[in-house]
Nucleic acid binder design. Structure first.
Lengths: 188, 188
DNA sequence: CCTACCGATCGGTAGG
DNA sequence: CCTACCGATCGGTAGG
């Protein structure tokens, strides 16, 4: 891991606890036992950290979505794959996911707008998958936004409680969440 | 509404968009067309705003919980009431709820610890209600934390998409969410 | 409710 | 990677 990646990892951990604005370059430097000025040999500025982190994850989610949309799986299988991919991205990037989920609003333009449009693309993708699954195409149009956000919120909540070293394995996690969510919406 | 309440309302709206740390006393003053120094005639400091907001909502949730726990409703009805109360508190305080949900980590001690213990109390209360409902007492002990947080996250997501003036009414919202969540967990 | 101001800290730069 | 430093802004106070 190079110096730049070390700075990112240190920053993300601090920002998870103190927020993006509440984490100073001196906090980050101190966490790496160097001076704040030295950070600028590896990154252009504080915003680099937030921007790179947010889009690295956003790209992973969008890549996953596009792979699913292009595949020839059956709709219900697509939904399973979507959930599984989403969970795996989160679990594989717990600290980064927290900053991605809760600090993106501090992105400056044009990143802010770009991020929002990627999030929208992702939500529309899940909506597409849900609509193609005929086992629940009987709920009203106005409910889709709610269902999509509810499902994503439940999945994203993993970041709040899941311990990668705990007793629950990732596969088990995917299975339980798939059951809860698919049962929940199929009879709407 | 007195001056203090106006300051709170202005602050909460700003903090929803820019975060607690990212919102300065000068931002708040500017939003009220006064000088920053004048704010201190009505509040002791910036922390007042966050602390009061977080505990006002925390108390509403805990009060709702205690009323339900003391009632003699059947377990499944308690669950319905819990969901309905939770949704109504959120919908009745959309801006405040956002700050409550995402800015509490900037609380200083002893408020920070107090807040966490209240959140824990609320989660344990929902766990109690779920356990007493025999229609889903068949899922494993280790799943409760996950189920509790998933349910709360889905409910809290309302704050992200619900428009109080939109086509979906609060009662309808409670009904749909009850269905999704109770269907989702009953077959676990 | 204001003017005037405080020490502390911010992100970042110059220069080595 | 450091020392030394910049202008801007922070939360907050004194005094009226």
């Amino acid at each position: 891991m190079n110096r730049r990646e070390q700075i990112f990892q240190t920053s993300i951990k601090l920002m998870k606890n103190k927020g993006y604005v509440g984490t100073s370059m001196r906090d980050i430097a101190s966490g790496m036992s160097i001076e704040a000025a030295s950070l600028y040999n590896h990154i252009k500025g504080k915003e680099d950290i937030l921007t790179d982190n947010c889009f690295e994850l956003a790209n992973k989610f969008i890549d996953s979505l596009n792979t699913i949309l292009k595949s020839d799986e059956k709709p219900l299988d697509k939904l399973h794959t979507f959930i599984s991919n989403h969970v795996n991205i989160l679990v594989g990037n717990m600290d980064a996911a927290h900053v991605f989920l809760y600090e993106w609003k501090h992105l400056s333009e044009p990143h802010y707008s770009k991020f929002l449009s990627m999030r929208d693309e992702y939500e529309q993708g899940l909506r597409r998958i849900l609509k193609d699954d005929e086992s629940n195409n009987n709920f009203e149009n106005s409910s889709y936004k709610m269902v999509v956000i509810s499902v994503l919120s439940s999945l994203n909540a993993i970041e709040q409680w899941y311990k990668p070293d705990g007793e629950i394995k990732v596969e088990e996690l995917c299975n339980i969440l798939s059951k809860i969510l698919i049962n929940g919406i199929k009879e709407l």
